[in-house]
């Protein structure tokens, strides 16, 4: 799918990037996504957000699973770990537990995160590990050329459901809210400015932040989650939405017909690092921990 379209990327995007002042976050490798892919919004949004937060590229690790979106680490000039299908969150967990100083951004798609990797999301969320999870939901398996995903709509026709998809799609937002994520937002790849701002907030949040990004697959989905259709359906959160109101966030998350964009929910509670440090203090190892952290810094 990818190689043939590199040139188009070069023409359309490289110039814009060069002028943005975010070049140092950029890898020399060039994205392999199809032209018009929603993921280009991420390629722009993450460096911009890191830049504006003043987080140095060497202190950032972008971790991904397998899927179109998971190619992202190759296209940023930070540290990156392109892992296995579905395992982005546990690898990211290991990185963050081992080194608090790193900013860890997990990236993946709907299949990676909610099919094969679905078992890991609740635990990352409930532990409130201080990482950012950018979930690009295109409702399809793009890398393997268009099969049904756990967020595909009922009635969606793909090569693996030639008689159309019979299964109820998941609602990831409801799930991560229930799992105990402390920052939950939703964005649309068609609105890159809002996306960039939400990525910035998500990274800035101390705790597990989950950003659900509706992102069309222009190659394999011509009927359902297209730019046009999504553009017509997405809406802003109501002006009076209180992101600290869990019940209100749940109500908003339930609306899949007209998905709300913005920060649905935010909450502060101790992170996994706080908990682990607490254990170290209880065990009498705080001094040794402090020495180790100082040495590493």
């Amino acid at each position: 799918m990818a190689e043939a379209h590199q040139q188009i990327y070069l023409e359309d995007k490289l110039k814009e990037v060069r002028e943005s002042g975010r070049l140092e976050y950029r890898s020399k490798a060039l994205p392999t996504w199809c032209p018009g892919c929603g993921y280009f919004a991420m390629a722009g949004g993450v460096p911009a957000a890191l830049n504006s937060l003043g987080i140095a590229p060497q202190d950032t690790v972008v971790v991904s699973g397998i899927g179109c979106s998971s190619r992202f680490p190759f296209f940023v000039n930070t540290y990156g770990f392109h892992t296995l299908h579905g395992r982005v969150l546990p690898v990211a967990t290991g990185i963050k537990v081992a080194n608090d100083a790193l900013t860890v951004i997990a990236v993946g798609g709907d299949g990676d995160g909610f099919a094969i990797g679905g078992g890991h999301v609740p635990h990352a969320a409930r532990r409130n590990i201080d990482i950012t999870y950018l979930l690009f939901d295109n409702g399809i398996y793009g890398l393997t050329k268009g099969q049904t995903s756990p967020t595909s709509a009922i009635g969606f026709r793909t090569p693996t459901s030639p008689y159309t998809n019979p299964d109820q799609p998941l609602n990831p937002l409801l799930m991560v809210l229930a799992y105990g994520a402390t920052w939950v937002g939703q964005a649309f790849a068609g609105h890159p400015q809002q996306l960039e701002e939400l990525i910035r907030q998500a990274i800035a949040h101390r705790g597990f932040s989950y950003l659900h990004i509706l992102s069309p697959c222009v190659t394999f989905d011509k009927t359902d989650k297209t730019y046009d259709r999504l553009e017509q359906r997405v809406r802003s959160l109501p002006a009076n939405h209180d992101p600290q109101d869990f019940a209100a966030a749940m109500r908003q998350a339930m609306d899949v017909e007209t998905p709300p964009m913005g920060l649905l929910y935010v909450n502060e509670r101790p992170t996994l690092a706080d908990a682990l440090d607490g254990i170290v203090v209880k065990a009498g190892g705080a001094e040794k921990r402090a020495r180790k952290v100082a040495k590493a810094a």
């Binding site: 395992r87 546990p90 690898v91 967990t93 537990v97 081992a98 190892g285 180790k292």
Partner: peptide
């Protein structure tokens, strides 16, 4: 924890080795 080190009970063995490799990637002995 007495030595200031961290242990996490993961949700399954896949995440256990995944996190171990994640930590190993940062240079930690995991």
């Amino acid at each position: 924890p007495k030595h200031g080190k961290r242990l996490l009970q993961t949700e399954d063995e896949i995440s256990a080795i995944a996190a171990t490799i994640g930590a190993g990637y940062t240079g930690a002995r995991a």
